[in-house]
Structure formats: C-alpha cells, structure tokens
Amino acid sequence: MVIPSPWIAIVDDDPSVLKALSRLLRTRAINTKTYESADEFIGSLPENTTDGLPECLILDLQMPDMNGLELQRYLDDAGIRIPTIVITAHSESDMRELCTAAGAEAYLLKPLEDTSLLDAINAIRAKTARSTRSP
C-alpha cells in the first residue's frame, strides 16, 4: 500500500497568487495543488472517502461565484473536514469571526509573510498529528 505524501490545496481566483504561494511552499518541500475556483476544488474531491484529502486548505476569501466562506460552509455541510487557512485582503473583524466560526484554523491578511503561513501550516500539522495519535 502506497501512502500518499501529504499535500496542501490552494484555492484562489488569482493565478499569480496561486503560482507564487505554490512556489513558496514548494521551496519548503510542501506539496501543493492549486485551484482557481471553489467549484474546481469541490470537483477534485474524492467521493465517499476522506482519503486523498489535502492536509490543509489555503483558501482565498474573495472569489467569484462561490467565495471562501461559502466553500468552508459547503465542506462543513458535506462533512468534509479540511483544516483551512483563510487568506484575504479584507481586514474586517466580522469576516474574521465568520471564518473562524466556520472552522478556519488561521486568518491571514494579504500580502502574507512566509513565516506566518508556514507557522499556520505547522500548527495545523501539529494539531492533526495530535488528533491522529489520540485513541
């Protein structure tokens, strides 16, 4: 049995941002897959299994058709638990609260520092590791 290496999904409607974040994480040996819309990401999810899910979702909040918050809610409604880091240019506190309420692990403002992003990823990894070790 081949255990798939962990990867992180990045969803942002801006291809430049997708490419830059993907490059940043790749230099740190983190695999990424990029999606330009929520629909594209949902379409990539395996059906009826949690296998193959990304270890983390970096999600842009402001996107056409379905924004980041709506995607969070969709996944929640679908019972799909993916730790999510929300990245946005919006600094409004109400939006931060909404995202947190929807299950966001981190809420980072653009332009984001690499350390903040890596810290958030590491925090999720640690949390995930703790949860998998617990009986």
Binding site: D14, S16, V17, K19, A20, L21, R23, L24, R26, T27, I87, A89, K110, P111, L112, E113, D114
Partner: peptide, 14 residues
C-alpha cells in the same frame, strides 16, 4: 493592489 503584492512577496521570499 494586494493581490499582486501577495504574489510579489511570496515569490520574493521563495
């Protein structure tokens, strides 16, 4: 403005 800045910063740090 933030979108290109985000890309710039991430690319520069990478």
């Amino acid at each position: 403005v933030n979108q290109p800045l985000t890309a710039i910063l991430s690319n520069a740090q990478a």
